[in-house]
Protein backbone atom coordinates (compact mmCIF):
# COMPACT_ATOMS: atom_id res chain seq x y z
CA UNK A 1 0.00 0.00 0.00
CA UNK A 2 1.41 3.37 -0.93
CA UNK A 3 0.90 6.42 1.25
CA UNK A 4 -1.17 9.47 0.39
CA UNK A 5 -0.09 11.47 -2.68
CA UNK A 6 2.90 13.66 -1.94
CA UNK A 7 0.99 16.80 -2.79
CA UNK A 8 -1.65 16.09 -0.09
CA UNK A 9 -2.20 18.77 2.50
CA UNK A 10 -2.00 18.04 6.19
CA UNK A 11 -5.78 17.69 6.70
CA UNK A 12 -5.83 15.39 3.72
CA UNK A 13 -3.09 13.32 5.26
CA UNK A 14 -4.91 13.17 8.55
CA UNK A 15 -8.03 12.14 6.75
CA UNK A 16 -6.17 9.56 4.70
CA UNK A 17 -4.59 7.89 7.71
CA UNK A 18 -7.62 8.42 9.87
CA UNK A 19 -9.77 6.63 7.37
CA UNK A 20 -7.37 3.70 7.23
CA UNK A 21 -7.27 3.45 10.99
CA UNK A 22 -11.06 3.50 11.03
CA UNK A 23 -11.17 0.69 8.48
CA UNK A 24 -8.61 -1.20 10.50
CA UNK A 25 -10.84 -0.94 13.56
CA UNK A 26 -13.80 -2.22 11.59
CA UNK A 27 -11.78 -5.13 10.25
CA UNK A 28 -10.72 -5.83 13.79
CA UNK A 29 -14.39 -5.90 14.82
CA UNK A 30 -15.07 -8.28 11.96
CA UNK A 31 -12.27 -10.73 12.55
CA UNK A 32 -11.22 -10.50 16.19
CA UNK A 33 -14.29 -12.22 17.67
CA UNK A 34 -13.62 -15.21 15.47
CA UNK A 35 -9.93 -15.35 16.21
CA UNK A 36 -10.26 -14.79 19.93
CA UNK A 37 -11.94 -18.12 20.50
CA UNK A 38 -8.95 -19.96 19.11
CA UNK A 39 -6.57 -19.26 22.01
CA UNK A 40 -9.44 -19.51 24.48
CA UNK A 41 -10.16 -23.03 23.29
CA UNK A 42 -6.76 -24.11 24.62
CA UNK A 43 -7.61 -22.83 28.08
CA UNK A 44 -6.61 -25.25 30.79
CA UNK A 45 -9.43 -24.03 33.01
CA UNK A 46 -13.16 -24.24 32.46
CA UNK A 47 -13.37 -20.52 31.92
CA UNK A 48 -14.39 -18.45 28.97
CA UNK A 49 -11.79 -15.81 29.55
CA UNK A 50 -8.02 -15.55 29.63
CA UNK A 51 -6.56 -16.81 32.86
CA UNK A 52 -3.46 -15.07 34.31
CA UNK A 53 -1.40 -18.12 33.32
CA UNK A 54 -2.52 -17.74 29.74
CA UNK A 55 -1.60 -14.07 29.67
CA UNK A 56 1.88 -14.95 30.98
CA UNK A 57 2.15 -17.53 28.20
CA UNK A 58 2.75 -20.08 30.87
CA UNK A 59 2.41 -23.51 29.21
CA UNK A 60 0.53 -24.59 32.34
CA UNK A 61 -2.30 -22.34 31.31
CA UNK A 62 -2.83 -24.12 28.03
CA UNK A 63 -4.12 -27.58 27.35
CA UNK A 64 -5.84 -29.70 24.78
CA UNK A 65 -8.39 -31.01 27.22
CA UNK A 66 -11.38 -29.40 25.52
CA UNK A 67 -10.36 -31.00 22.25
CA UNK A 68 -9.95 -34.30 24.05
CA UNK A 69 -13.42 -33.89 25.42
CA UNK A 70 -14.81 -33.24 21.95
CA UNK A 71 -13.16 -36.32 20.50
CA UNK A 72 -14.05 -38.64 23.36
CA UNK A 73 -17.45 -37.42 24.47
CA UNK A 74 -20.07 -39.66 22.82
CA UNK A 75 -22.60 -36.80 22.63
CA UNK A 76 -20.28 -34.64 20.56
CA UNK A 77 -19.14 -37.55 18.46
CA UNK A 78 -22.71 -38.56 17.75
CA UNK A 79 -23.51 -34.97 16.81
CA UNK A 80 -20.52 -34.81 14.49
CA UNK A 81 -21.54 -38.10 12.92
CA UNK A 82 -25.12 -36.87 12.43
CA UNK A 83 -23.89 -33.70 10.76
CA UNK A 84 -21.65 -35.74 8.51
CA UNK A 85 -24.55 -38.01 7.63
CA UNK A 86 -27.07 -35.26 6.93
CA UNK A 87 -25.15 -32.51 5.14
CA UNK A 88 -23.74 -34.52 2.18
CA UNK A 89 -27.08 -36.19 1.49
CA UNK A 90 -28.86 -32.84 1.51
CA UNK A 91 -26.13 -31.35 -0.67
CA UNK A 92 -26.30 -34.13 -3.21
CA UNK A 93 -30.05 -33.76 -3.50
CA UNK A 94 -29.88 -29.98 -3.78
CA UNK A 95 -27.08 -30.01 -6.33
CA UNK A 96 -28.61 -32.64 -8.60
CA UNK A 97 -32.05 -31.12 -8.74
CA UNK A 98 -30.74 -27.57 -8.60
CA UNK A 99 -28.28 -27.91 -11.47
CA UNK A 100 -30.87 -29.50 -13.75
CA UNK A 101 -33.33 -26.76 -12.93
CA UNK A 102 -30.76 -24.00 -13.40
CA UNK A 103 -29.97 -25.36 -16.84
CA UNK A 104 -33.68 -25.51 -17.60
CA UNK A 105 -34.17 -21.98 -16.36
CA UNK A 106 -31.38 -20.62 -18.51
CA UNK A 107 -33.03 -21.88 -21.69
CA UNK A 108 -34.50 -19.04 -23.70
CA UNK A 109 -38.14 -20.00 -23.46
CA UNK A 110 -39.31 -20.97 -20.03
CA UNK A 111 -42.95 -20.36 -19.25
CA UNK A 112 -43.59 -18.50 -15.97
CA UNK A 113 -39.87 -18.10 -15.45
CA UNK A 114 -40.29 -15.27 -12.97
CA UNK A 115 -42.78 -17.13 -10.83
CA UNK A 116 -40.76 -20.33 -10.86
CA UNK A 117 -37.64 -18.45 -9.90
CA UNK A 118 -39.45 -16.78 -7.03
CA UNK A 119 -40.63 -20.14 -5.71
CA UNK A 120 -37.21 -21.75 -6.02
CA UNK A 121 -35.48 -18.86 -4.27
CA UNK A 122 -38.08 -18.57 -1.51
CA UNK A 123 -36.39 -20.93 0.99
CA UNK A 124 -33.58 -18.40 1.22
CA UNK A 125 -35.93 -15.49 1.79
CA UNK A 126 -38.50 -16.90 4.20
CA UNK A 127 -37.26 -16.45 7.77
CA UNK A 128 -35.95 -19.73 9.12
CA UNK A 129 -38.28 -19.76 12.06
CA UNK A 130 -41.25 -19.70 9.70
CA UNK A 131 -39.83 -22.44 7.51
CA UNK A 132 -39.12 -24.43 10.65
CA UNK A 133 -42.63 -23.94 12.03
CA UNK A 134 -44.28 -24.83 8.73
CA UNK A 135 -42.14 -27.90 8.22
CA UNK A 136 -42.68 -28.99 11.80
CA UNK A 137 -46.46 -28.97 11.44
CA UNK A 138 -46.53 -30.37 7.92
CA UNK A 139 -43.87 -33.05 8.35
CA UNK A 140 -45.66 -34.17 11.49
CA UNK A 141 -48.79 -34.71 9.47
CA UNK A 142 -47.04 -36.84 6.91
CA UNK A 143 -44.87 -38.71 9.39
CA UNK A 144 -41.52 -37.17 8.41
CA UNK A 145 -40.97 -35.22 11.62
CA UNK A 146 -38.12 -36.65 13.63
CA UNK A 147 -36.77 -38.75 10.78
CA UNK A 148 -33.47 -38.66 8.93
CA UNK A 149 -35.28 -38.34 5.61
CA UNK A 150 -37.29 -35.40 6.90
CA UNK A 151 -34.19 -33.48 7.96
CA UNK A 152 -32.39 -34.23 4.68
CA UNK A 153 -35.37 -33.06 2.63
CA UNK A 154 -35.70 -29.90 4.71
CA UNK A 155 -32.01 -29.08 4.42
CA UNK A 156 -31.99 -29.80 0.71
CA UNK A 157 -34.86 -27.35 0.28
CA UNK A 158 -32.87 -24.71 2.18
CA UNK A 159 -29.76 -25.29 0.08
CA UNK A 160 -31.45 -25.18 -3.30
CA UNK A 161 -31.56 -21.38 -3.76
CA UNK A 162 -27.77 -21.24 -3.42
CA UNK A 163 -27.27 -23.87 -6.09
CA UNK A 164 -29.73 -22.15 -8.39
CA UNK A 165 -28.07 -18.78 -7.92
CA UNK A 166 -24.48 -19.90 -8.40
CA UNK A 167 -25.19 -22.20 -11.33
CA UNK A 168 -27.40 -19.67 -13.11
CA UNK A 169 -24.63 -17.13 -12.61
CA UNK A 170 -22.14 -19.32 -14.44
CA UNK A 171 -24.71 -20.04 -17.13
CA UNK A 172 -25.35 -16.35 -17.78
CA UNK A 173 -21.84 -16.09 -19.16
CA UNK A 174 -22.20 -19.37 -20.97
CA UNK A 175 -21.81 -19.13 -24.72
CA UNK A 176 -24.64 -21.00 -26.35
CA UNK A 177 -22.87 -21.32 -29.66
CA UNK A 178 -20.64 -23.89 -27.96
CA UNK A 179 -23.49 -26.35 -27.51
CA UNK A 180 -24.71 -25.65 -31.01
CA UNK A 181 -21.21 -26.23 -32.36
CA UNK A 182 -21.04 -29.47 -30.44
CA UNK A 183 -24.43 -30.54 -31.77
CA UNK A 184 -23.51 -29.63 -35.32
CA UNK A 185 -20.40 -31.76 -34.98
CA UNK A 186 -22.65 -34.70 -34.23
CA UNK A 187 -22.67 -34.94 -30.43
CA UNK A 188 -25.94 -36.00 -28.81
CA UNK A 189 -27.35 -33.77 -26.06
CA UNK A 190 -26.04 -35.99 -23.26
CA UNK A 191 -22.52 -35.97 -24.61
CA UNK A 192 -22.75 -32.25 -25.17
CA UNK A 193 -23.85 -31.76 -21.59
CA UNK A 194 -21.05 -33.76 -20.04
CA UNK A 195 -18.27 -32.82 -22.44
CA UNK A 196 -19.00 -29.17 -23.12
CA UNK A 197 -21.47 -27.67 -20.71
CA UNK A 198 -20.54 -29.44 -17.51
CA UNK A 199 -16.82 -28.56 -17.44
CA UNK A 200 -17.70 -24.93 -17.92
CA UNK A 201 -20.38 -24.70 -15.27
CA UNK A 202 -18.62 -27.11 -12.90
CA UNK A 203 -17.08 -24.36 -10.76
CA UNK A 204 -20.57 -22.91 -10.29
CA UNK A 205 -21.97 -26.32 -9.44
CA UNK A 206 -19.25 -27.00 -6.93
CA UNK A 207 -19.49 -23.67 -5.20
CA UNK A 208 -23.28 -24.00 -5.17
CA UNK A 209 -22.75 -27.39 -3.60
CA UNK A 210 -20.43 -25.92 -1.00
CA UNK A 211 -23.01 -23.29 -0.15
CA UNK A 212 -25.66 -25.98 0.14
CA UNK A 213 -23.30 -28.02 2.28
CA UNK A 214 -22.49 -25.18 4.65
CA UNK A 215 -26.18 -24.27 4.82
CA UNK A 216 -27.02 -27.74 6.02
CA UNK A 217 -23.89 -28.14 8.13
CA UNK A 218 -24.56 -24.85 9.92
CA UNK A 219 -28.28 -25.00 10.18
CA UNK A 220 -29.88 -25.07 13.63
CA UNK A 221 -33.40 -23.73 13.60
CA UNK A 222 -35.01 -26.14 11.17
CA UNK A 223 -33.24 -29.21 12.48
CA UNK A 224 -34.33 -28.42 16.03
CA UNK A 225 -37.94 -28.49 14.94
CA UNK A 226 -37.89 -31.13 12.21
CA UNK A 227 -35.35 -33.46 13.78
CA UNK A 228 -35.37 -35.56 16.91
CA UNK A 229 -32.56 -36.70 19.21
CA UNK A 230 -31.33 -39.13 16.57
CA UNK A 231 -30.64 -36.25 14.22
CA UNK A 232 -28.96 -33.97 16.72
CA UNK A 233 -26.30 -32.20 14.68
CA UNK A 234 -23.18 -30.33 15.69
CA UNK A 235 -24.74 -26.84 15.60
CA UNK A 236 -27.74 -28.15 17.52
CA UNK A 237 -25.44 -29.58 20.18
CA UNK A 238 -23.66 -26.22 20.30
CA UNK A 239 -26.94 -24.39 20.65
CA UNK A 240 -28.03 -26.60 23.53
CA UNK A 241 -24.60 -26.22 25.03
CA UNK A 242 -24.69 -22.45 24.83
CA UNK A 243 -28.15 -22.32 26.31
CA UNK A 244 -27.74 -24.95 28.96
CA UNK A 245 -24.55 -26.64 30.00
CA UNK A 246 -22.04 -24.07 28.95
CA UNK A 247 -18.73 -25.87 28.56
CA UNK A 248 -15.55 -24.62 26.91
CA UNK A 249 -15.68 -27.68 24.65
CA UNK A 250 -17.90 -25.46 22.54
CA UNK A 251 -14.89 -23.25 21.88
CA UNK A 252 -12.86 -26.24 20.75
CA UNK A 253 -15.66 -27.22 18.38
CA UNK A 254 -15.90 -23.62 17.22
CA UNK A 255 -12.18 -23.55 16.46
CA UNK A 256 -12.48 -26.72 14.40
CA UNK A 257 -15.41 -25.23 12.54
CA UNK A 258 -13.44 -22.05 11.84
CA UNK A 259 -10.69 -24.18 10.34
CA UNK A 260 -13.26 -25.96 8.18
CA UNK A 261 -14.76 -22.70 7.02
CA UNK A 262 -11.33 -21.33 6.08
CA UNK A 263 -10.82 -24.44 3.96
CA UNK A 264 -14.20 -24.09 2.32
CA UNK A 265 -13.65 -20.40 1.71
CA UNK A 266 -10.36 -21.07 0.00
CA UNK A 267 -11.92 -23.75 -2.18
CA UNK A 268 -14.72 -21.44 -3.26
CA UNK A 269 -12.26 -18.64 -3.94
CA UNK A 270 -10.07 -20.87 -6.11
CA UNK A 271 -13.11 -22.16 -7.95
CA UNK A 272 -14.33 -18.65 -8.61
CA UNK A 273 -10.99 -17.64 -10.08
CA UNK A 274 -10.88 -20.79 -12.18
CA UNK A 275 -14.37 -20.14 -13.44
CA UNK A 276 -13.49 -16.57 -14.34
CA UNK A 277 -10.42 -17.75 -16.16
CA UNK A 278 -12.38 -20.40 -18.03
CA UNK A 279 -15.06 -18.00 -19.03
CA UNK A 280 -12.51 -15.43 -19.95
CA UNK A 281 -11.00 -17.97 -22.31
CA UNK A 282 -14.27 -19.01 -23.93
CA UNK A 283 -15.07 -17.01 -27.05
CA UNK A 284 -17.73 -14.34 -26.85
Amino acid sequence: MSGPPIYATTPQRIWYYGFRVLCGVIFFFLIAPILIIIPLSFNAENFFTFTPEMLRFDPEGYSLKHYRDFFTNPDWQQALWNSVRIAPAATLLAVTLGTLAAIGLSQPHVPYRRAIMAILISPMIVPLIISAAGMYFFYSRIGLQGTYVGVVLAHAALGIPFVIITVTATLVGFDRSLTRASASLGADPVTTFFKVQMPLILPGVISGGLFAFITSFDEVVVVIFVGSANQQTLPWQMFTGLREQISPTILAVATILVAISILLLMTVELLRRRSERLRGMSPG
Binding site: Y136, F137, S140, R141, I142, G143, Q145, G146, S228
Partner: peptide
Protein backbone atom coordinates in the same frame (compact mmCIF):
# COMPACT_ATOMS: atom_id res chain seq x y z
CA UNK B 1 -45.65 -30.57 21.63
CA UNK B 2 -43.81 -33.48 20.07
CA UNK B 3 -46.23 -36.13 21.33
CA UNK B 4 -49.05 -34.09 19.90
CA UNK B 5 -47.25 -33.93 16.58
CA UNK B 6 -46.57 -37.67 16.63
CA UNK B 7 -50.18 -38.31 17.47
CA UNK B 8 -51.35 -36.14 14.57
CA UNK B 9 -49.11 -38.15 12.29
CA UNK B 10 -50.33 -41.43 13.81
CA UNK B 11 -46.74 -42.44 14.31
CA UNK B 12 -45.69 -42.83 17.94
CA UNK B 13 -41.91 -42.96 17.99
Amino acid sequence: AKLRAQNEAGNIA
